[in-house]
């Protein structure tokens, strides 16, 4: 017996990105190949080259490069597995 919600909101996604440049409180961030402008209001002491976790256009946490790369590696692992599955089917 599972209790499924009637309407599911799925906005809790967040992805890591590397800060490429900063102008005032807005950074241009590389989200694994996609560039996006991200606000830095919620994090402290960020600079170019830092990795941040991005949620709805805001950096919500600093990440180490190792942590970010771990996440990117997981993403590419799933993408590869998915492509393999599509090829096999």
């Amino acid at each position: 017996m599972s209790h499924k919600p009637k309407v599911t909101l799925t906005m809790c996604l967040a992805v890591p990105g590397e800060i490429l440049s900063i102008t005032n409180s807005t950074a241009t961030v590389d989200l694994g190949g996609i560039k996006q402008d991200v606000r830095l209001d919620l994090v402290e002491d960020t600079t170019v080259g830092h990795y941040v976790l991005v949620h709805v256009g805001y950096a919500i946490q600093l990440m180490t490069p190792a942590e970010a790369k771990e996440t990117f590696a997981l993403f590419s692992e799933y993408t590869a597995a998915l492509e393999q599955e599509l090829e096999d089917s």
């Binding site: 906005m11 809790c12 606000r39 209001d41 949620h55 709805v56 256009g57 805001y58 919500i60």
Partner: peptide
């Protein structure tokens, strides 16, 4: 997770 961006 999302509330702080509204505060900002």
């Amino acid at each position: 997770t999302t509330t702080p961006s509204n505060a900002a």
